[in-house]
Nucleic acid binder design. Sequence first.
DNA 1: GTGAAAGCGCTAACAG
DNA 2: CTGTTAGCGCTTTCAC
Lengths: 341, 341
Amino acid sequence: MAPTDHRPLTLRDVSEASGVSEMTVSRVLRNRGDVSPATREKVLEAAKALGYVPNKIAGALASQRVNLVAVIIPSLRNMVFPEVLSGISNVLETTDLQPVVGVTDYLPEKEERVLYEMLSWRPSGVIIAGLEHSDASRAMMRAAGIPIVEIMDIDGTPIDAAVGISHRRAGREMAQAILKQGYQHIGFMGTKMPLDHRARKRFEGFTEVLAKNGIEVEDQEFYSGGSALAKGREMTEAMLERSPELDFLYYSNDMIGAGGLLYLLEKGYDVPGKIGLAGFNGVELLDGLPRKLATMNAGRSEIGTKAAEIIAERVADPTKEVERIVELSPKVLYGDTLKRR
Amino acid sequence: MAPTDHRPLTLRDVSEASGVSEMTVSRVLRNRGDVSPATREKVLEAAKALGYVPNKIAGALASQRVNLVAVIIPSLRNMVFPEVLSGISNVLETTDLQPVVGVTDYLPEKEERVLYEMLSWRPSGVIIAGLEHSDASRAMMRAAGIPIVEIMDIDGTPIDAAVGISHRRAGREMAQAILKQGYQHIGFMGTKMPLDHRARKRFEGFTEVLAKNGIEVEDQEFYSGGSALAKGREMTEAMLERSPELDFLYYSNDMIGAGGLLYLLEKGYDVPGKIGLAGFNGVELLDGLPRKLATMNAGRSEIGTKAAEIIAERVADPTKEVERIVELSPKVLYGDTLKRR
DNA sequence: GTGAAAGCGCTAACAG
DNA sequence: CTGTTAGCGCTTTCAC
């Protein structure tokens, strides 16, 4: 076999093989317009026999339409985001739109680069995590002239539309729940992430309510990197050694909360009697723990679903007015670690 | 402000704004060819002022070059795949290639669709999980004329190149380690996934070694859906009730293994004295458990790294010969649950 | 160092 | 129902 020059197949090849004009071949392959069953058959056969795969690049340029939706998130390791993605995929699968994922690692500069790259493919819409972006990023999104949905957070001003929860409110509600159960000596653990705005807002809401009740967070600790479960364990140990008077530990995510819970159970602490615990997110993982960690449901797949729906509607009808802000309600899940003592 | 018609900006706009020809503008924006510092300056300024974002669709069509690498994996929920992705990203970030992720949900038909979609964007290469694909999928990949790297598994015949471990061997080695420690009554738990070929191969290798030693798996159970941690817990309870004579439990992944471990510790079982445990994957999560589950390191980020390197090399020099099969060695990690009793 | 012309592979728009 | 023509926005190639 001579080493065939690997020129990719084009419409013209299918046209010649089937004896049908390029235009009609194109119509068949896109299911557009009326084509007689006979020619359709011929075309499909030829295309299949050749193994033709359409060139979307050329198609997109000619039609000025790209069925991609850019989805920009901080990380894939955080469990939370794959769930949001599922929600998005489920909805987009019912349309002819396709998600394309970009990851920012919580870095604004990287967000900017990723956004630039993605916009240069002229997607039909953008779903992006958070409301905080660099000026350049905002400018790009505004200038793109496509629907933009900012997700996860609604505490701020969206460029176009936002779907999520109020993290300030989430923090406030958790604080209220904790105080209501009579806990008074509270420690906090979280990620060392100045750029995790949502965690910051939760913490702000949390301390705000405590302050109103004359209470302060008595100890706090932050981590970065490593196994979150292990970090939760270590931080909890260190904190209780330092501040044995604490009767409640609030974790900025469920993973470190789970680590803390395992540690406390192992050491024989009375949870939630002597000490209560709560995390944030409502991850599935918690179902498998010996005791159920209190947490808060942030409605992740719902966020994905709603965001994708907004994009789909706006793509279908660009003039359509949609709600600018969709606020979902975070719910305190009491589990077994935040209970009337 | 009149509602500006949102015609996206083109090179021509930048050209007009800067008084430089389109061609030269293009050269500046791509850093290609010599351009005088003065004009370069002018162009950059104009582009920035306008907020111009190049149109890669047109660029790709004209240059017949697309800097995308299609990465096709079964799922994002499985921890394992985000890690592989990190490895890929880390390498590709040093080139001008970009990963684009597609998810198949372990369904061959979906794999076929995703592949078709991705190939229609004419990527520079494909990284795809597994060696089992539909005939149509294989045909497409072969016909694409681009480097294809199949990852995770090497037990089979790659289309072009493969990077991964032998799951049969992994299963065999785990069986040997278990037998060597004197365990004799073995139960198995895994996913109910006829399409998870790698889990199947591990199981085959595992039973092969047991058989050679005159031993059979005495009980087994499969699950699907739900929280893996919780399922591990439930299945373990059910299995030990049914088969109390078991002295070792082999789990097809670390998550269910962790669930089992937590259950056993809670019930006060002597681990690994009365009963030993092992999982598969070496996930970071295990570091946070009260006791370290025995497992096997499958070298995930290494797989991603190596696969991306192969693609990058082949893109840089298509004639270059690369190893067709890169076998990484799975290593048994004894942890605290597979020990001399 | 810079510019003009041609064309990448497809589809919109129109004609028949 | 089918075909023809023009051109999407850029880069290649070749001229100057």
